[in-house]
Amino acid sequence: MILIHCPYCDEKRPEIEFANAGQAHVARPLDPSSQSDEEWEAYLFIRANPRGRHHERWRHVHGCGRFFNAVRDTVTDKFETTYKAGEPRR
């Protein structure tokens, strides 16, 4: 069980307090009705599956309750960094 640094609580907490919430920085289009079918398909379904550095969302669901972003290495399962929702991609 890994430790994950919650950027809101500002401490490392055990993994079982967290839930993964999929790929990060997939923003909902501001005006979905203006999206072409292809654009909307990409937003809904197309996700990265990198070997190595991966931007993910996690939620400290059994803690402060906040969603945040993380960079995790999918090979080593090590977190490179975590940062608050809304902060620029790292």
Binding site: A21, A27, R28, R66, F67, A85
Partner: peptide
Amino acid sequence: NMMEDYLQTEWP
């Protein structure tokens, strides 16, 4: 969880 997700990350 779904509502929190939209509230926190899409419409903060």
